[in-house]
Computed example of a mutant assay.
Amino acid sequence: MNLTIKQLQILQAVVVAGSISQATRSVGLSQPTLSQHLAKLEEELGTQLIVRGKSTAIRLTAAGEFWFRIANDVLGDLGGAFEQHKVLFDDKNLSLRFGTTPSLRSHFTELTARAALDTGQISRVEYIWGATSDEVAEMVSTHRLNCGVVSASSIEGSRSSLHVENLWCDRLVWLVPADAPDDAVGRILAGAQFKTPKFEALTRYVKVNSALTWSAWSDDWYRHRLPFASPFFTCMSHQASVDLVAAGLATCHAPISLLHNLPPQIRSRVKYFDLGEYAREIVLIMPRHLLSLRPFKMFCDTVSDYTRRMMMKEDTTGNRSPAQPPMTEACLID
């Protein structure tokens, strides 16, 4: 039998991405080349691993499930061996590759840089941002990142191979322009706004990236609360959505954690309302095998402990619209 590491990497990447086409970016190969590698792996094993159909999504056979677990174990052990080698024999080249999403980036850039320096053994930090938590989680699972901060819903299929630290529950809030009439906003929140309001920004909203786990919830909220509003704008990032609201053009949903890091000139032009309906759980993830290495464990503990303390402080001291009560449940929806 002549299996290669590359074949196992491709199998893992395809399963994690959910389709052959989606895996092309993570492994840097074209779709035909990926398919050829998978076909050669199946030929070598003498069995089918992936069921290919008209749908772009893939389905694993029993043998495919078995070899996917093997791929995770082998690649995880190999990655751990390389990192252990750096610690034992090449301590000047121990690198940290950290990733998160644009809405969470400002919370972690300085923190992770200082935590890496404090270990005294990490010599290089590389930051790689993903458009969504799913993308960041995929990069951690395929070893392009060795640490990331994501929404917990993005790691449901890969928790067994990851060390997970719960950080905080990130509530979603409704943002409106600062000059939006309080009476109209109050009627909308009370479910009593049945006519199109005169304030034009309330008749438009920003549709978030459809790949986000809470995109469907946001659309449903607008259908029920603002049936007269149209998704006039579509944005890939929360920051861009908030910019449109600050310009007085629309309303949007955004994670409350984003608001703490808005520039003063933007934050002063919006007001937000804690709806108490939806929260995403934010977690730090790292491949389990890296926790056996002191620099990575120290980094993980420092970032997790500091983040939990700061978010608890912000949650108790941060401003919240007096018209809306605080969310009392820990995390309604992940």
Rank of each mutant, 00 (worst) to 15 (best):
L3C: 03
L3Q: 02
T4L: 00
L8D: 00
I10E: 11
V15M: 00
V15I: 04
V15P: 01
Q22F: 02
S26D: 14
V27R: 04
L38A: 05
K40G: 00
L45D: 07
I50P: 02
S55Y: 03
T56E: 08
A57P: 02
A57C: 03
I58S: 05
L60G: 11
E65G: 06
F68H: 15
R69P: 00
N72K: 12
N72F: 04
V74E: 11
G79E: 11
E83K: 05
H85A: 05
V87C: 11
V87L: 14
D90N: 13
K92G: 10
G99W: 04
T100W: 04
S103W: 02
L104E: 10
R105F: 08
F108R: 07
T109N: 13
D118K: 11
Q121Y: 07
R124G: 00
I128R: 11
S133A: 04
S133G: 15
E135H: 05
A137D: 07
V140D: 02
H143R: 15
L145D: 03
L145I: 03
C147S: 14
S153C: 09
I155Y: 07
E156N: 08
R159N: 01
R159A: 06
S160M: 04
L162F: 12
H163Y: 11
L167F: 12
V176G: 08
P181N: 06
D182Y: 04
D182C: 03
A184F: 02
A184Y: 01
A190E: 10
A192L: 04
F194Y: 05
T196V: 08
K198S: 15
R204G: 00
V206E: 03
K207H: 10
L212K: 13
L212M: 13
T213N: 09
S215H: 15
A216N: 14
W217L: 05
D220V: 02
Y222P: 02
H224T: 10
P227Y: 02
F228G: 07
F233Q: 10
H238K: 05
S241W: 09
V242M: 13
D243S: 13
L244T: 09
L244Y: 14
V245R: 12
A246S: 14
H253C: 08
A254F: 05
A254R: 03
A254W: 05
I256N: 10
H260N: 06
H260S: 12
N261P: 01
N261I: 03
L262Q: 11
P263Q: 09
S268E: 15
Y272W: 15
Y272L: 01
F273R: 00
G276F: 08
G276I: 09
A279S: 15
A279W: 01
R280C: 06
I282G: 05
L291V: 06
C300P: 00
C300K: 00
D301H: 14
D305L: 07
Y306C: 06
T307S: 14
T307H: 07
R308M: 05
M310D: 12
M311W: 14
T317I: 11
G318Q: 08
N319D: 09
S321D: 15
S321E: 07
Q324T: 15
P325S: 12
P325I: 10
P325M: 10
P326Q: 11
T328H: 04
L332C: 08
I333L: 13
